[in-house]
Design a protein around this nucleic acid. Sequence first.
DNA 1: TGTACATCAGTGAACGCGCGTTCACTGATGTAC
DNA 2: TGTACATCAGTGAACGCGCGTTCACTGATGTAC
Lengths: 208, 208
Amino acid sequence: MVATRQTREERKARTRADLLVAGRQVFLERGFHRATLDEIAEAAGYTKGAVYSNFADKDALFVAVLDAHYASRIEAYRGIMLEGETIEQTLRAVSRFMAEADAREPRWLPLLSEFTAHAARHEPLRDSYKRVREGFLEAVADVIADLGERQGVTYRVTPLEIARASSILVRGFSAERQVDPDIISPALFEELNTAFMLGLTNLEGSTT
Amino acid sequence: MVATRQTREERKARTRADLLVAGRQVFLERGFHRATLDEIAEAAGYTKGAVYSNFADKDALFVAVLDAHYASRIEAYRGIMLEGETIEQTLRAVSRFMAEADAREPRWLPLLSEFTAHAARHEPLRDSYKRVREGFLEAVADVIADLGERQGVTYRVTPLEIARASSILVRGFSAERQVDPDIISPALFEELNTAFMLGLTNLEGSTT
DNA sequence: TGTACATCAGTGAACGCGCGTTCACTGATGTAC
DNA sequence: TGTACATCAGTGAACGCGCGTTCACTGATGTAC
């Protein structure tokens, strides 16, 4: 397992990938503001300079982490959609996936919230954040539209709005849970999600 | 209009009140992190030391601002509840009030989100924030419970959970809007709110 | 296959600065007699 | 009503420090011939 000779390009791509993994991890552990580039670089096995050689600054590193996160989410959603047989089954599977992802990485949503607040206040960053985020929501909307077609279901609002509405709920839950993770009862979670899904889809089959 | 002689106690209370007003304003303008105690003190007509003479630190000042904000909200909600004749009317009036408050001070919710993220990461602050916030939600729950009794309506979940659910929606909307205020269509807003309210109350009158 | 020079990813140390916090001080209010 | 001392809200200046960012450098890869 001796380090093979690599071209510059390969090495740099490797470094970038290492920094993304380490960045994600340290951001999750410490939060955006408290994570230091020193710690991230060290966790990846480099020094701070490597970060600046691969990303414009700390903000850009985070946006890249976010981009990678969303890419993997989209892939997961696509997979779930292909597996589900009925719309109800698929929606339930998506809900389950989201709940599991949150349980697996409970700090992700608070981290996103912290970064959103930061990005909203810093003009150029705000734009690049918006681009990545809207790209994600549009990709989710595509999945939702595909699902509708496959299952012959119509929606009361556009797929993009459904994606956004889902995000609204998720982020709202997260905001509320930040103070105390146990504060949202499972009953409340279920009621809200159900109300939300019934409200936005014509599940009864009426296509008016 | 010569400054009247005041006791120390009166003067101090006045200073504190001035700082709260100025703090609220500067926090709204700049956000929590970017607001400086210098600017707040100056806006209030004092120097930084006055802040430290009235509050433990920057965090405590914000919590005090928050506390005052919630107190005035509760008062408003109580007023609305007393005026409404039917439950539908009252719920609509509350929705309108919340929308108007958000339009009047669009930076309040982002500010709260920024501070929540901050507080979540700082142990002792987190507790005092939680105390203030839970106190608010409980007061809202009281209003909701009173409303139910007055109008003879039952809820599918506890009043406290309704208060929390409402807060979840509000904060979710706000999180989503931070990137771009125009991104949530009125239609989506209405659909979600309706789904939410129908989901949590037994409006048809069934008390089962 | 070898030599000489160019490139550039990553290093390591230094910089800089914004601002929250501290602290000795002051002058007006409060208290005792 | 007056005097002497105590208190303490608010002042103003200095401190401190964490960390993002910069930059001259190096040594391995790339390129030309």
